[in-house]
């Protein structure tokens, strides 16, 4: 008992303190979601009422296709996650394994491009996509495929950080051997590299899934149709009013929308921890 106190007590104290810190705002979100007044419950720590009106609104109000939004979010975020990992890992593989001119310059440029304050570039993206809409209405402004393309635009750069170190850490003997076997670089990538990198690829996919799931700055410009909105955009209508905000459904919708993320997150916890570090640990 004495030893336990000495060695583990501080660990539990830190854990409990930080857990409280982590949970406190979330608790307020939860009680706000059970309040029917529509505003954030900020100062009363004991819920005044337990009302399911907000949840009811999300599922039973015909003007709020919440489940369709969830489906859209899962679909878009899922596609972005998979495709961006393919694009990102291909580049990371090439940067790490292939020798070519301008390799260092290339990766430096790629990293720097990510640092551009993109807030103004959104205007340009908007103009490009509204022009695309003129000749290809299926993939232009206002469509999910159009938004997907824009998200993928950043795919090559964003994940390079996490992937690069990991790729470096995979021993190159394996692909040397494959080379001797007569495999081409593309074959080495698919047959040797991808299976080896599977855990870290899963993590990168998950991170970009979460990022895409919560993105609303671009999405709200693209997904105007009620039926094509994602959760992040759809829920905006409750709080984006000029002067009136209805926090209840927003809180309820946010909580429900974060459940799939939490489930994936917790079930992949081991992967995530090893994957995140693998990216930065060299060999």
């Amino acid at each position: 008992m004495n030893k336990w106190l000495k060695q583990d007590l501080w660990r539990h104290l830190v854990g409990v303190a930080i857990c409280l810190f982590a949970l406190f705002p979330l608790y307020l979100v939860i009680i706000s979601s059970f309040s029917s007044s529509g505003s954030l419950q900020l100062s009363s720590f004991i819920p005044k009422e337990i009302s399911f009106a907000n949840y009811n609104k999300l599922f039973n109000d015909p003007t709020i296709p919440y489940l369709i939004w969830v489906k859209n979010s899962l679909l878009i975020a899922g596609s972005v996650a998979v495709m961006s990992v393919v694009i990102g890992s291909a580049s990371a593989f090439a940067f790490s394994r292939l020798r070519f001119k301008g390799r260092k310059l290339g990766i430096q440029l790629l990293l720097l491009v990510q640092m551009f304050p993109a807030i103004l570039a959104i205007s340009a993206v908007y103009v490009i996509m509204e022009r695309v809409y003129k000749f290809a209405p299926e993939i232009g402004l206002g469509t999910q495929p159009g938004l997907l393309l824009v998200y993928l635009g950043g795919a090559m750069g964003v994940n390079i950080w996490l992937l690069k170190g990991f790729v470096d850490s995979i021993p190159s003997e394996l692909d040397e051997a494959a080379k001797i076997d007569g495999a081409s670089e593309v074959q080495t990538f698919w047959l040797i590299f991808v299976p080896l990198a599977a855990p870290v690829l899963a993590v990168v996919a998950l991170l970009s899934f979460i990022g895409t799931f919560n993105e609303f700055i671009l999405a709200r410009l693209f997904l105007v149709d009620m039926e094509s909105r994602t959760v992040a955009v759809g829920l905006q209508q409750f709080i984006g009013g000029q002067y009136s905000q209805n926090w209840g459904p927003f809180a309820a919708g946010s909580i429900l929308a974060s459940i799939p993320i939490v489930i994936i997150f917790l079930s992949l916890q081991k992967y995530i921890v090893s994957g995140l570090t693998a990216g930065s640990v060299k060999g």
Partner: peptide, 29 residues
């Protein structure tokens, strides 16, 4: 009628729109 998800989104889209996508009438502030 095209309904935006929030007043801000409407304003931002109208600020950015050109004739390729812009509305004929906008109900705004």
């Amino acid at each position: 009628v095209v309904t935006f998800s929030s007043f801000d989104a409407l304003k931002e889209a109208f600020d950015k729109a050109t004739d390729a996508s812009g509305p004929d009438i906008v109900v705004g502030a």
